[in-house]
Design a binder for these strands. Structure first.
Lengths: 213, 213
DNA sequence: CATTTACGATACGGGGCCGTCTCGTATCGT
DNA sequence: ACGATACGAGACGGCCCCGTATCGTAAATG
């Protein structure tokens, strides 16, 4: 008896299998178009297929529409980012690593363009924003939260700040994120991360302790 | 720009004068559409005219195209923002006023939506971004620079930080700006500005030297 | 009054994208 | 070999927008 609703997952494909390289090529093309300045409104299924050198029907065979395609594109964004390692070194070194990661992402055209484009769409398509947030942003913030809690545990961070970890993360990331996202063309030379870390640790007020005059 | 060869300012217009209310209505409509989530790519001259209840030819009579119209729209953004007053109070109070201004702008749908939309377009249309930067952003940063220099003069801000005023401004604005722009839905209750100011002034490290647990 | 320009509405040809469909060819399992 | 499916290419009707032009009406000058 050959039940048509066969529960086994190996639903034998019958004809020519889909070429996985085609799907990758389309996603890569969309990432390139966004990096080149296209907003989601600028992207068209027809234009994507043309830019990818792919038949339009092939794109529609894989994705129902632009939103479904963009969801897969978002999932591919963070595939290239190894999670930062906080193994050895002082808390200040770890903090510097985190800030440096933001700086380098700001220099990466694809990452920063994607973030800016997503920001413009977060009101329009909250599902897309949620996907970007969950797959890209949340992971980074979680890693930073672990770092900051470690800092509080070893006394490098004022413990009362743990009451609002989200705000603490905004504070640690905000300076470099503003610089890379809002201020296109702002200097992003290497030494800047050091100064940002100094500001994050010590603030702008003169230190009351027996430090530098 | 409708003065062919009349050097005197009283170039007598001959027919029915343009209704200034129509121009205002169009600009206001575009601002509303952007606040409702439209990106620049979503906006069309035809749709704008329809939403404004205005003839399409009337829009084209005033602006050559979408870019020219958007330039005027940008110029209208900051018309509603009174410049902040730094008259009395401590430096901390002034800083709180500045941070509070960012928080309130983040709550204003029109302002934050415009900023997010502009970010997505800054690569695509640098002229538009320059206009937005010059008419909106530069003024706020200049006011903040004056505040920070005042703070250094009275000893409330470490003077060596004046070496990179742009970075200093990024640091002061970055936390609240990140929260209002990147993190839609994040809490923006009133007390938060106080905590941000504390972080800006004192940083995250314990102030009384290296405390050993 | 006549003239001139603005206004809202709408019609016009042109062009791009939509989503589907049909080709001819290619590549799989049977 | 054969059927089934994927592939690139492109045709197709439909829709929306572009920028201009043409209505009839309204409001200013002379």
């Amino acid at each position: 008896m050959n039940a048509p609703e066969a529960p086994d997952t190996t639903a034998v494909p019958r004809g020519r299998p889909r070429d996985a390289a085609v799907g990758r090529k389309v996603v890569e093309t969309v990432l390139r178009l966004i990096a080149d300045g296209a907003t989601f409104g600028d992207l068209t299924m027809e234009g994507i297929a043309r830019a990818a050198g792919v038949g339009k029907a092939t794109v529609y065979r894989r994705w129902n529409g632009k939103d479904a395609l963009l969801l897969d594109v978002l999932a591919a964004v963070d595939c290239f980012e190894p999670p930062p390692r906080f193994t050895a070194g002082s808390f200040r070194d770890h903090l510097l690593t985190a800030v440096e990661a933001i700086r380098r992402r700001g220099l990466a055209k694809r990452e920063s363009a994607m973030l800016r484009t997503m920001l413009g769409q977060m009101q329009n398509s909250p599902e897309l924003w949620k996907a970007y947030h969950d797959t890209v942003i949340a992971k980074r913030r979680a890693a930073l939260a672990r770092l900051l809690e470690h800092g509080m545990a070893i006394g490098a961070v004022r413990p009362e700040l743990g009451a609002d970890m989200e705000l603490l993360i905004d504070f640690v990331t905000g300076t470099m994120l503003s610089r890379t996202t809002f201020r296109q063309g702002a200097s992003l030379d290497e030494g800047i991360s050091e100064r940002v870390v100094d500001l994050i640790l010590n603030g702008i007020a003169p230190s009351a302790g027996p430090a530098e005059p």
